[in-house]
Nucleic acid binder design. Structure first.
Lengths: 204, 204
DNA sequence: AATTTTGTTAACCAAATGGTTAAACCGTAT
DNA sequence: ATACGGTTTAACCATTTGGTTAACAAAATT
């Protein structure tokens, strides 16, 4: 069996490609740089993935599959809204610290080619608002949270959690803080963001 | 005087370049495409702007100068926090409808090259948190709003307003809405976002 | 009117880039 | 041992791309 070897190379390519594509984007990425990072000949990229476009798509799907479960935690979990907001906020900020380029990569590439996400919408595990919508409507009706549509609440939760990482250079410049202070701000947000959201929607 | 002619050409180039750079990004943009959109010969781009890099920087500064006054409305205006939040939210969403690619462009390019914003920090009119910080601290002390740092509040305001436009393709896919419904959601946010923020920070 | 300066173009160039190919390599089965 | 299969590499190729040049046109200056 030499399969160990192939799978290893294929995996090394994907890892290197994830690295380069996430930091440089599709247009800025260079096949040669990916090959160098993987420590193999450039022809191997085409041997295993045919073209830059297909390699990119493999990377995108792989990266996206990391994000989807995070979002499903808020959409398809069984806990209360309040619990979900607390858990999601806490976990997401930890998660993103391990994948700092992920949100920007996904957002950038989807804006470059918005049709691309349509191919993924069918795959199982793709985040979907249906269940969350029912829950929000029910809690609004019960009176435990103020009137808000599930869509707007979902947008707000994502915005407050994701945006600070996407806009890091901008925020750092405006607020005149260095990397260290910025990191502390993000650490504080693990609990502050949840409080901010809950304060806003909770009925007294 | 043929100055009318030059300035016209120079201006046409900048307009075409803004168009192309904002939609394709620095790496995806092609000098030929800019020339075509401007209806002139490619050599003119170099005649007026020397290089792709310098043309890009001219575009970036121009685009950034549209955004800065929007942000200063919340940082350096004299109205109360509540008023500011209401006005900013309402105005920003209108503003962005006229410049849909702007926030994504700025965020994407700053992530590609975070040092770039340092060159701009000195220029007058560059958004700065100093005044806003004093105001927030004062209002917290007075007890008119709940304890929150100016930095976190500013991040939250930006996040809730900017993110929905940056992440449009993502949100559309998750919530299964078409462009028309999405536009309505954004329209609703002109008032909903301000309420959301104020609910969260206002002391009862 | 002659000349100099500025604006504009077509043709060209060198480097970079995604992709291909033909030969070498290497473990395995015959 | 040898032939065979997938794997890997160096060299190569065609195209794209940012940038240049030299000649030409249009003003501006004298």
């Amino acid at each position: 069996m030499k399969k160990g070897k192939d799978e290893n190379t294929e995996e090394q390519i994907l890892e290197a490609a994830k690295n380069v594509f996430q930091t440089k984007g599709m247009d800025g990425a260079r096949m040669q740089e990916i090959a160098d990072k993987a420590g193999i000949n450039k022809a191997m990229l085409h041997y295993y993935y045919r073209s830059k476009q297909l390699l990119f798509e493999a990377v995108f799907k792989n990266v996206f599959s990391l994000l989807a479960p995070q979002l499903n935690a808020i959409l398809n979990d069984d806990s209360s809204i309040e619990e979900k907001v607390k858990n999601f906020t806490f976990n997401y900020i930890s998660f993103i610290s391990k994948h700092p380029y992920l949100p920007n990569f996904i957002i950038q590439e989807l804006n470059r080619n918005p049709e691309f996400i349509l191919q993924m919408k069918d795959s199982k595990g793709f985040p979907n608002l249906a269940k969350f919508k029912k829950q929000v409507d029910r809690e609004v009706e019960k009176g435990s949270i103020k009137p808000i549509s599930a869509e707007q609440l979902f947008i707000n939760i994502l915005a407050l959690n994701i945006f600070p990482f996407v806009a890091k250079p901008l925020i750092m410049a405006f607020s005149n803080v260095d990397s260290k202070v910025y990191k502390q701000l993000m650490e504080d947000r693990k609990t502050e963001v949840a409080d901010f959201i809950i304060n806003s929607i909770k009925n007294t």
